[in-house]
Design a protein around this nucleic acid. Sequence first.
DNA 1: CGATCTTATAGAACGATGTTCGATGTCCGC
DNA 2: GCGGACATCGAACATCGTTCTATAAGATCG
Lengths: 263, 263
Amino acid sequence: MFDVRNHAEERCGGMGRMSPQRQHGARPSPEVRAVRERPAAGRRRTSHSLEAVLTEAVALLDTSGEHALTFRALAARLGGGAASIYWYVSSKDELLDRAADHVLADVLVAVEGVGGGDPVDDLRTIALALFDAIVERPWLGAYFMRDTGVQPNGLRLYERLGQQVLRLELGPRESFHAVSAIVGFVVGTAADMGQQAPEAVLSGEVDRDEYLARYAAQWRALDADEFPFIHHVVDEFAGHDDAEQFRAGLDLILAGLSLQAGR
Amino acid sequence: MFDVRNHAEERCGGMGRMSPQRQHGARPSPEVRAVRERPAAGRRRTSHSLEAVLTEAVALLDTSGEHALTFRALAARLGGGAASIYWYVSSKDELLDRAADHVLADVLVAVEGVGGGDPVDDLRTIALALFDAIVERPWLGAYFMRDTGVQPNGLRLYERLGQQVLRLELGPRESFHAVSAIVGFVVGTAADMGQQAPEAVLSGEVDRDEYLARYAAQWRALDADEFPFIHHVVDEFAGHDDAEQFRAGLDLILAGLSLQAGR
DNA sequence: CGATCTTATAGAACGATGTTCGATGTCCGC
DNA sequence: GCGGACATCGAACATCGTTCTATAAGATCG
C-alpha cells in the first residue's frame, strides 16, 4: 500500500501545484488517522469511518454542487453532528482534498489496462479518462493533486501518464515537461468546461443549445472590424461540443510531443 | 468603445467557460451602471466610483490573497460602509468578475504592439503575457472570461490571440480549437502554479527551493518499481522553473499547431 | 423657492458557515 | 471495575455575504 506517513511534519503540494497558505496540520492524533477504518463490529450510534465521510461528501457534491457541501449538511447525511467530522478531517480543505482523491480511485481503475499500445494513444486514453471525471465534477479540478501527502491517487495517475511518456525515450526534462503540460491542459480545460450554464442544470440538453445560441448572438452583435476572429469562429462556437474541443486541443499537444520524440 | 449593452436581459458566459448558477442580474438600476464614473465634482463624503472599488479590490487581492477580499475589508479601505459597495456591484461574484477584467486591461496594453511578426511567435508572446498576469494573481484564473457581458477585456484578449491564428489560414473549426486550447492551457497551468507554498510568501526565494527539495525527498522515498517515472523526473522537478515549464508546454501546443498549418 | 425624484451612502440585522471547546459516552486492556 | 484512548456531539464564536430601511445631497421642475 501507499505509506507516505506524515508524523507531524507538514504536508507538501506537488508537481507544480502547491497547496496554499492553509496549514491543515493534523491536530488531533495525526498518524493514527490511517487506521480509521475499524470494522465497526458493535457500532455505537453512527460510526462514520473516513470512507463513509468521503463517500457522502462526494455524493453531496455530485448531486448539489460544491456550495452544497457543508459540514452540517454532511453531518445530517451521516446522521451525526457537524463537529464529529473533524475527527476524520482537520479542515474543509482537507475534506475536499481527500474527496477529490477518493474520486480519482475510479479513474485509476478505468485506466488500469492501458499501457500496451502506442504510447501516444495510451496517453490520450488516460487523459480523456481524467477529463471526463473532471467535467462531471467541476470541483475536482481545483483540488486535483494539491497535496500528494493526502492524495496518493493523484500521484498514481500522474505516474501512469508518465509511464507512457517514458516509452517515448525522451530526456528527463522533456518527459517532465510533457506530463506537466498534459496534466495542466486537461485539468484547466476540464475545470473550465465544468462550469455549467445558469439554468441548464434543470432541463438538460435543449437549454444548452439555446444558451450557446444566445451567447453567439451576443458575439455576432460585436463590431466586425474590431472582432474579426470572433466573427470567424462564432458558428463553430455556437455548435461546439466540449469533448471534441478538448480532444482537438489535446491532439495539438500530442502532435507536438510526437514531433519531439521523432516519431 | 465596447457597447454590449444589457438591458435587463441576463448575461451569459463565453468560450466554453460558462458562468455558474449565480444569476447576478442587475437588481438596482442595471443599465445606468455604465455611467457610474461621475467626475466627482462636489463629492459628499466618500464617493467611490466603480473604478475606485475595483482598484482597491485588486489591491486587497494582491497584497493579502483572495480570502482577504471581504466586503467589510474593502469598505474599510474605501472609507465607507460595506453595504455601499452593492450599489456598484450586485454580488461578490460580479465584483471578482469585474476585478479580473480590470486587471486584464494592463495585459491588453502590454500586448498592444504584438501582431506584426511570425503568427506563432506572436501567439507565444501574448500567451506569455497572460500567463505572467495569472501567475502573479492566482485568483485571476478562476474568473477569467466567465461573463463576457461584464468582462470585455477578456473577450478582447481572446480576440487578439485569435487574430494571430487567423493568419495561419486554418478553417474556422481548427482556429476555434486552437485558441481554445491555448487559453485553456495558459489559464489552467498558470492558476495551478499560482498556488504558492504555505510559508514561501514570507521569505521569498530560498524557501521555495527548500520547499521543492523537501517535496522531492518525499517523492524519492516512493517505491522505485511502482513509481519509475517519478524517479525519472524527480531531479527535474526539484530544480524546475515555473516559467520554463510553462513555456515548454506551450511550445508543444504551438508545434502541433504549426504542423497543422503546414509550416 | 420648495416639492420631488434620483443618486448614493450606511447602520443594523439576518441567516449561514467553518471551526473550537468542553463534556460525555463507549470500548479495550489490565 | 477502572483508567485511558477512541469517538461523538451540543453549544457557542467569529465571520461572511447579503438585505432592509433610513437618510442626506444634488438635480429637476413648477
